[in-house]
Amino acid sequence: MSDMSDWPRPSGDELPELYEETREMTERADGILRDYFQVDGSGSMDRIVFDDAGQDDFLLALNADHEVMVPLFQKVAGLPDREFERQYGVGGIGQRLKGRKSSFKGYEPAERFAEVLSNIMPDSLSLESIFYTFFKMRESDQRRFYRMRYEEDIREFLVESGYPNFKGNSLPEEPDFVIPESEPYEVIGEVRVIQRKDREKRFKEFRSEAAAAATNFPDARFVAIANMGAYIEHHDDRESLRDGITKDGSSEIDAVFFHDERDELLDQLSEWGVTRQTKIG
């Protein structure tokens, strides 16, 4: 198997545990693929031969380690849950299979998934192609989920600190958090997990969202929270980054906080006199 340390890791500072977990998953998958399918070692890279593999071969491979093999085959075959349901009429296939505790044998959704794989997988694929595809697609998925989890973490932190809030899915521009839970709204907040390569794009998004909030919620403050991972911890001039988000104060952004400035966020909310829930006991 090729050395995954040579593959790009754009979220390396953000999610080091993701890459380690994915490396462990591919090592487990390597053994299973070799155990249940023919291996062609005649070229410069080992190839897994799927040409003669049938439903039972895929079912056994899936059953051997469903936590690894279900997402791997979904990503390599291009069959996420929504696409599998659209084409084959079985909803939530990934969650059904990954969460199952007993054998796949005789379980209709698993047998259907294995049957489809036996029909659509190419004659053969190099192990490097299989694992690179899995590695990059899983990285993309997990980065998205990580950003969602970070938004939830901020909302929970605010609640625990006495500021009930909600995600504004029903409001214009769908802000990431709104304080308080009922009108009049006092704070509109947006959250971003930012990498160096997309920094300017994310900064511009903050300014656009702040401009929209100024129109839709003219009496509310606008707060930007930027999670820049390890990069911010080693940056010599945070204020220059803050100015880069606000464009030297010319935007409608009232305050910018980085992921390790939560106490400062609370201090600012208190200074503004934002409605705070009194905790009892």
Rank of each mutant, 00 (worst) to 15 (best):
H259I: 03
K98F: 01
G189P: 06
I253Q: 10
T22V: 11
V223L: 10
E24A: 15
E24V: 10
S129L: 04
I120E: 13
D237Y: 05
S170F: 04
L97G: 00
G54A: 00
K279H: 06
S11G: 11
R221M: 05
L60A: 13
K105G: 01
E20I: 14
Q195K: 11
D176H: 04
S102W: 00
P8T: 11
L158D: 12
R34V: 05
E85S: 13
Y185N: 05
K136M: 14
I194C: 03
M148F: 10
N227M: 03
T133E: 14
R242W: 06
E27P: 01
A226C: 08
P10R: 15
Y36E: 14
F206S: 08
S251R: 09
K204C: 00
S44Q: 08
G41M: 03
E20N: 15
V76M: 11
T275A: 10
R149I: 00
R9W: 12
R82C: 13
K204L: 03
D263V: 09
I179H: 06
R9K: 15
E261T: 04
F145A: 15
S250L: 13
E67C: 00
G89E: 11
S182Q: 07
K136L: 08
G94A: 10
P122T: 03
N63M: 06
K101R: 13
F177G: 00
T246Q: 11
S182H: 05
S182L: 04
S129P: 00
V76L: 06
E139K: 11
L18R: 13
P109N: 05
L127N: 02
R207K: 07
I225Q: 09
R23M: 14
M228F: 10
D52T: 05
G244H: 04
P80N: 15
N216Y: 15
E239K: 09
V159D: 13
R155S: 03
Q38N: 02
Q74P: 04
E181F: 09
F157R: 15
E173Q: 13
K136G: 04
A110N: 01
S140Q: 12
D65V: 06
S140H: 10
R238K: 11
S161K: 12
A214Q: 08
S251Y: 08
S102Y: 01
S270Y: 12
G99Q: 07
A220C: 02
R9L: 12
F134E: 04
